[in-house]
Amino acid sequence: MEEALLRAVLFGTPILLASLGALLSERGGVVNLGVEGMMALSALAAFAAALEAGPVWGVLCGVGVGSLLGLFLGVFAVFLRANQFVAGLALAALGLGASGLLGKRYEGTPLPDPLPEGVLAGLALILALGLHLLLSRTRYGLYLRSVGENPKAADLFGVSVDGVRYLALALGGGMIGLAGAYLSLAYRPSWTDGMTSGLGWVAIALVILAGWQPLRAVLGAYFFGLLFFLQFRLQGSVPIPSEAFAAMPYLLVILVLALSGRARAPRALGQPFDRGR
């Protein structure tokens, strides 16, 4: 049982970090569907930097690249006011593709000094708490929520809607970058094309499941991590096909969603803000 809980936390951590990142910008009204690609590129950046200069640089580089990609999405979602859903999907493809092309030379090299998972898992928990406090207790949090709910009103009160959104994308991107760094520096200390294996999509789903609440995202991520581990822990010990176990995490997510009812999304989610409108 202890192992199961430990795995829940350690495998839940990258999902948690990525979903916190997506959650942050979504509270400000910007949907981020590019998580998978952002994670892949920052995992590569983190790995390359860690190999050249050490793990601390690796983490910094992963976070930095994540932030830049967040701002890149911002160019489309905020500056150009383009369709956020499609911009995100395109970014996901671009990130996966670019990381695959650029990362060729790093494939097959183990990282000599991996980071301890526990430290990053702790950091993720602190970040979740911090994000909760940021949203509920700070002025920026208030601005962010108002921009996500009613950008027009926020604008009338003198809040810079675009500025708030850029900052949210950069900070959120940093967290997604940290998730990527966790994968390539700690979880599986090496780089291979496609190593994010769909976790970015799970993270996006988790934002909705958590009802856009950081602390509920913690529970959700650990819950998913636990189920993911249990599919292998229980496989073969009960007379149920292994495929049924593999499908279990996703089935339970649907059930939880149906039972927990309507989580309310930020009202202006996915809508570009135009002052003149």
Binding site: G37, F76, L80, A82, N83, V86, A87, L89, A90, L91, A92, A93, L94, G95, L96, G97, A98, S99, G100, L101, K104, D193
Partner: peptide
């Protein structure tokens, strides 16, 4: 590498919506 397809698709899409 097969990823070139993703890069092409991603960039073209971004340019279209932009």
């Amino acid at each position: 590498p097969f990823r070139v397809v993703d890069v092409v698709a991603g960039l073209l899409l971004l340019s279209l919506i932009g």
